[in-house]
Design a protein around this nucleic acid. Structure first.
Length: 653
RNA sequence: CGCGGGGUAGAGCAGUUGGUAGCUCGUCGGGCUCAUAACCCGGAGGUCGUGUGGUUCAAGUCCCACCCCCGCAACCA
């Protein structure tokens, strides 16, 4: 019998920088589903990869002083490493710079152009000349200026290619209606229909000519094919699509059974992508799962906030499976989830160490202690307590199966963990240590321990899609080499004839939360400090070799005498003093980092040297308009104090 | 009146077609000793954002009004 196919994809990761824990959610979620489907006997193809074209990449490469290709090679390798580190079992890691992909995208564009679904038109918008970029009205900054440089924009037109969306709008809506499963969660449908389809679909501009890093339009190489056409096409090129004749694998796997993506790009996958496919006369994907985001605490991760968590760093502390487990069990289906070191530790200790790890540990230890690790299958499972346990296990699998079906992956993992709890309870109900004291109960004791190990084995099988390494570790502890097919849990309870186990290391050692948090914050502090110092050193280095300074250059610096009117410490700051200065024609607020060396009152009324025309800067929430000069020797700062007779505002030169 | 999501115990969430308010963590008390100071049982804790609102025999659940939070608005998973 031929296996049923299951084609699953993730969003391809943008190669702008190293992926963080949120980026990893997507492939991990898809991985759990892919692994489950494989266990269920499906012929699974799991596609993931990286999106490598676009203006941003071009810019980043330029900044780094390397070619775009060199740049994306570096980041794509990083992405792949992180995916591999997280044990993501993809069948292909596609890069949009792969030759087969680029060739196919070029042809796809060409084909649609010939068909008339893509046409050449004019793009009208606001244009910033210095930045050479177009913006839509909504992108503009306050007052209608360029969001990048703040300068005014002009109306401009540019030749561009467009995809006819309106032509397919009705068919798209019809598809939505006929396939209620297409959207997961369903709420995303209303979002799309209300926001984009109801107002009317404007044709989509699918080319750019302001940068060149991308797939060029064949007959018009000034134009680069819009990144989304390029990126979305990976789902078909990844399995061998070619407008001139696809590989058999394409006909076999397409249409995709599931696209796993983040909620922010649902629009691209449920509107543009289906339309693109319709234009190509290809069947549409069956489902699109738009998952929520992983926040750090309450905030979105961002570099500027400094709250970015990386999967590989977390894995180093907690282990890969713990990170996978957290993502899969703790992130809700339709709402943004949250991760912090604290919540990660809590989950690790309560679920992995206490419930699961300890269950395995105590069960194996008893099997070893009372029977030298050797247990045979009991003749019957008719004890009431046993039957309840077995029924519970059966229910667990049903829940798991259903959860994967309706994509509530978290419910599935949690069901398995609930069963582990049930097993802990079983130990209390049966009290093996009490049975062990009575020789007459030996058979019962053996049955109880067998039931436990058989339950644990089933837990391991069910856990495999979520925590593959842990599942394997449990099998190893049970001296088994199986564990990768669902038949091993759909078979009646009591599949294994006899166990022969040996005591094992704890699967998850409990974490001392306070200690770890302390270590982490100290590490973080040290890291920040090092970064700061490196930056400072670099700045100094840049500033130092200025060479001889012309008189004209010197004259650019406006030094004046400033009389201190007020001086006080800046709250919460070790170094800063806040001054109000009389500089002759005006009064100014200036901050200076000399609090360690002077008491505010010492400087009151003194005449100091101020760099008057320095650009203002914000320090600890205060604007500083200028800089006070001081000498530095052996780390001690001494401000330059002028003759008391010097009038405020007097030019120094 | 842009669109969408959310507001349920200290925290994080579930609550399917309306029928006695649940789960996990934490907390308090008890039990047990096989195990990773773990495990098991029990208690306390909620006027389910607000409304003397509406429908109903019955509303967290449907309808209405209002308040607050968050996301999106054509290259952020």
């Amino acid at each position: 019998m031929e296996k049923q196919k299951y084609y699953i994809t993730t969003a391809i990761a943008y190669t702008s920088r190293k992926p963080h824990i949120g980026n990893v959610y997507d492939p991990v979620l898809a991985d759990a589903i892919a692994r489950f489907k494989r266990m269920a006997g499906f012929d699974v193809f799991y596609l993931t990869g990286s999106d490598e074209h676009g203006q941003k990449i071009e810019e980043l490469a330029k900044e780094a002083g390397i070619s775009p290709k060199e740049y994306v090679d570096g980041v794509a390798a990083q992405i792949k490493d992180v995916w591999d580190c997280m044990n993501v079992s993809y069948d292909r890691f596609i890069r949009t710079t792969d030759a087969d992909h680029e060739a196919a995208v070029e042809k796809i564009f060409q084909k649609l152009l010939e068909k008339g679904d893509i046409y050449k038109g004019e793009y009208e918008g606001k244009y910033c000349v210095p930045c050479e970029s177009f913006f839509t009205a909504s992108q503009l900054g306050e007052g209608g200026v360029c969001p990048d440089c703040g300068r005014p924009v002009t109306d401009a037109k540019e030749e561009a290619y467009f995809l006819r969306l309106s032509k397919y709008a009705d068919r798209l809506v019809q598809y939505y209606e006929e396939n209620p499963e297409f959207f997961a969660p369903l709420s995303r449908k209303a979002e799309m229909v209300n926001n984009f389809i109801k107002p009317g679909l404007a044709d989509l501009c699918v080319s750019r000519s302001t940068f060149s890093w991308g797939v060029k339009v064949k007959e018009d190489p000034r134009h680069v094919i819009y990144v989304w056409i390029d990126a979305l096409s990976n789902y078909i090129t990844g399995v061998g699509f070619d407008p001139d004749g696809s590989k058999p694998s394409f006909d076999h796997y397409w249409p995709a059974d599931l696209h796993v993506i983040g909620k922010d790009i649902v629009r691209f996958h449920t509107i543009y992508w289906p339309i693109l496919l319709m234009a190509l006369d290809l069947p549409l994907p069956k489902r699109v799962l738009g998952h929520p985001w992983v926040l750090v605490g309450e905030d979105k991760m961002s570099k500027s906030k400094g709250n970015v968590l990386y999967a590989d760093e977390l894995a180093e502390i907690f282990g890969v499976d713990a990170v996978r487990y957290y993502l899969l069990s703790e992130i809700p289906f339709a709402q943004d989830g949250s991760i912090t070191y604290e919540s990660m530790i809590a989950k690790f200790n309560s679920d992995l160490a206490n419930t699961l790890g300890n269950l395995v540990s105590r069960s194996v230890a008893m099997a070893d202690k009372y029977f030298g690790g050797k247990l045979s299958r009991p003749v019957a499972f008719d004890d009431e307590i046993d039957q309840d346990l077995i029924a519970c296990e059966k229910k667990t699998f049903e829940t798991l199966n259903q959860s994967i079906d309706n994509l509530h992956v978290g419910d599935g993992v949690n069901a398995v963990m609930d069963f582990a709890k049930r097993c802990n309870k079983y130990i209390d109900e049966t009290m093996p240590w009490a049975l062990a004291k009575d020789e007459a109960q030996k058979a019962r004791l053996e049955a109880v321990l067998y039931n436990l190990l058989e339950s644990i084995r089933r837990i391991a099988v069910m856990l495999y899609p979520f925590m593959p390494a842990t599942a394997d570790a449990i099998h190893t502890a049970l001296n088994l080499t199986t564990g990768h097919t669902l038949e091993e849990v759909t078979a009646p309870f009591g599949l294994v004839e006899a166990f022969a186990v040996t005591p094992c290391q704890p699967l998850f050692a409990r974490i001392d939360a306070d200690k770890l948090i302390k270590e982490l914050t100290e590490k973080e502090k040290a890291k920040k400090k090092a970064e700061k110092e490196a930056k400072k050193a670099q700045k100094k280095e840049e500033a130092a070799p200025a060479g001889p300074c012309t008189f004209d250059d010197f004259c650019k610096i406006e030094l004046v005498c400033a009389k201190v009117l007020e001086c006080e410490n800046v709250p919460k700051s070790e170094k800063l003093l806040r001054f109000r200065l009389d500089v002759g024609d005006e009064e100014r607020q200036v901050l200076s980092g000399i609090a360690k060396f002077y008491k505010p009152e010492e400087l009151l009324g003194k005449n100091l040297v101020l760099v008057k025309n320095l650009l203002p800067r914000k320090l600890m929430g205060y604007e500083s308009h200028g800089m006070l000069l001081s000498s530095e020797a052996e780390g001690v700062l001494r401000v330059l104090i002028l003759d008391p007779e010097t009038p405020a505002g007097a030019r120094i030169g």
